[in-house]
Design a protein around this nucleic acid. Structure first.
Length: 491
RNA sequence: GGUCGGUUGGCCGAGUGGCUAGGCAGCGGUCUGCAAAACCGUGAACGGCGGUUCGAAUCCGCCAUCGACCUCCA
């Protein structure tokens, strides 16, 4: 098995990955709160942990990948006093909260499918695990790290900090937190501003409510991840992932909850992806640059010059390291689009390369370089750079400037399908002229190109150029190859 | 204000002490009736100042600047 090194946020170091159970990996990643359409921000953790999931599978692990759907408990405002996001959206759209959940869960899954993100092994919902959450809250109360007030239960950070260090994941000191945590109105129920809600008492008008030992209410946001991760992966599991923005307070709360419930750490490796900016600016609802994934795919956002295929978005993200911030711009996306096309072109050529009795290229070296990059904290940009080096080799062989044996060719083909398709999750984009829906359409274009070919035979350049130029102005790209003319629609 | 992390060629983006990723754009070439596309080749960078070192984009200090989290956000 490959020696995979991962950066662990908990230790701030790159560490050799050793699973708790040989050949098996348990991985939990914070999924979306389903109260709106998926946007670019959702794509980064999804693709990052999809890459990790795919690579673990590729190198032979059995992986149980759990990614939750938050459908209750994530509040709109600070101080645990705001409305539930889902409930608020339901009011706006005049729908039952569970209809909101269903609509946006479906839309999230659709978008993830388009990005070729593999579905996780288990996709549990918070509302489906109320019993487990109540159970976890009870454990925390029994351990003396939580208290009940007016039907709500809060985590007692101060009590916890007397037994365990609080802030170890995010690197915060509890004294600093006290000085920097704002005192807000409506926090009278809490002993301290640092305390966070485990269970919230539901007011009479609340639709989303469940019975509990403390009266009708709903769970706090942080509790679901502790309850569901340990239910499906055990009290101690290998990997917990999520966006860097969740580091504090969400993941810090999970660390504390796990400790409070079980008396030991629940997670071995904490992995965080970095954030995305758009034209150098943070994505924010108020800035109007919260671009939804559907808008990328159709080009229907004023910041976008054109539509971008899901594979372009995926490739673009993989061209940056997951722990680096990544800036989106039309220019950068179009560069990625062309680069991807170059890589995929080489892969097409790879299928039909002619073989020789000796190889002038070193496939083993290329292979070990590729795996070295992946093993070094999933360095996908380095991997892609090596794949481009390989593309150059493939083109040289195709041009007759380099040679490859049948054995090496087969190795190279396996390497590319394994790394590009299986690990990076990059698929060949569907060509407009291969689309069966456009069969008749394709025949008509083919007919025009045949007429042009006939004109060319007669050296009737005026006619042949007219056909080509008219087609070009209609958005076609005409390629004259040795085998005749080929065409595609310009993206 | 506190904590943490960036600042790399025209653009995006790797790289952690000497061996100067990669992509896009640019430039030159091959192919072509001419183009387009494709392919091949190629110049170009390490925020500023100071220090450590035989040698620094890479280590240290200071400054500037941008961002993240601390408050809903993936």
């Amino acid at each position: 098995m490959e020696k995979l090194i991962l950066y662990n946020t908990l230790t701030r170091k790159k560490e050799l990955f050793i699973p708790i159970h040989k050949d098996h990996v348990g991985m939990y990643v914070c999924g979306p709160t389903v109260y709106g359409n998926a946007h670019l921000g959702h794509a980064r953790p999804a693709i990052t942990f999809d890459l990790l999931f795919r690579y673990l599978l590729h190198i032979g692990y059995k992986v149980r990948y759990v990614r939750n759907i938050t459908d209750v408990g994530h509040l709109v405002n600070d101080a645990d006093e705001g409305e539930d996001k889902v409930a608020k959206r339901a009011k706006v759209e005049e729908l039952e909260p569970m209809e909101i959940v269903q609509i946006y869960t479906n839309s999230y899954r659709k978008n993830m499918g388009q990005l070729n993100v593999l579905p996780p092994s288990i996709e549990p919902t918070a509302s489906g695990h109320i019993i487990e959450q109540i159970d976890a809250v009870k454990k925390m109360i029994d351990a003396g790290f939580a208290y009940e007030t007016n039907g709500s239960v809060y985590f007692d950070v101060e009590a916890y900090a007397r037994t365990y260090p609080y802030g170890i994941l995010s690197g915060r000191k509890i004294e600093d937190l006290y000085t920097n945590t704002r005192d807000l109105d409506g926090q009278s129920e809490k002993k301290s501003g640092l305390d966070f809600a485990l269970w919230k008492n539901a007011l009479p008008e609340h639709i989303m409510r469940w019975p509990s030992p403390w009266g009708d209410g709903f769970p706090g946001w942080h509790t679901e991840c502790t309850a569901m991760s340990t239910k499906y992966l055990g009290e101690k599991f290998d990997i917990h992932g999520g966006g860097l923005d969740l580091l504090f307070p969400h993941h810090e709360a999970e660390v504390a909850q796990g400790m409070a419930c079980f008396g030991h750490a629940t997670v071995n490796y904490w992995i965080h992806n970095n954030m995305i900016t758009i034209n150098g600016q943070k994505m924010g609802k108020s800035l109007g640059n919260f671009i939804q994934l559907d808008e990328f795919f159709t080009g229907s956002h004023q910041l976008l010059e054109k539509a971008y295929a899901p594979m372009t978005i995926r490739f673009f993200m993989l061209q940056a390291h997951y722990r680096s911030p990544l800036d989106f711009s039309n220019e950068a996306l179009q560069a990625a689009e062309k680069g991807l096309e170059r890589l995929l072109n080489a892969m097409k050529l790879l299928a039909g390369l002619k073989t020789s009795t000796n190889s002038s290229i070193d496939v083993e070296k290329l292979k070990s370089d590729c795996y070295e990059a992946l093993n070094d904290d999933l360095n996908s940009p380095i991997l892609i750079a090596h794949l481009f080096d390989g593309a150059k080799m493939i083109n040289s062989i195709n041009d007759g400037n380099a040679t490859i044996t049948a054995e090496d060719l087969s190795k190279l083909q396996n390497l590319y399908s394994g790394l590009v398709n299986d690990v990076l999750g990059i698929q060949q984009q569907q060509n407009s002229n291969e689309n069966s829906n456009n069969e008749l359409f394709g025949q008509v274009v083919g007919l025009l190109l045949t007429l042009r070919q006939e004109a060319k035979m007669k050296k009737d350049w005026a006619t042949s150029d007219q056909i080509r130029d008219r087609l070009t102005s209609l958005g076609f790209e005409i390629k004259d190859t040795k085998e005749g003319a080929d065409w595609k629609l310009k993206s």
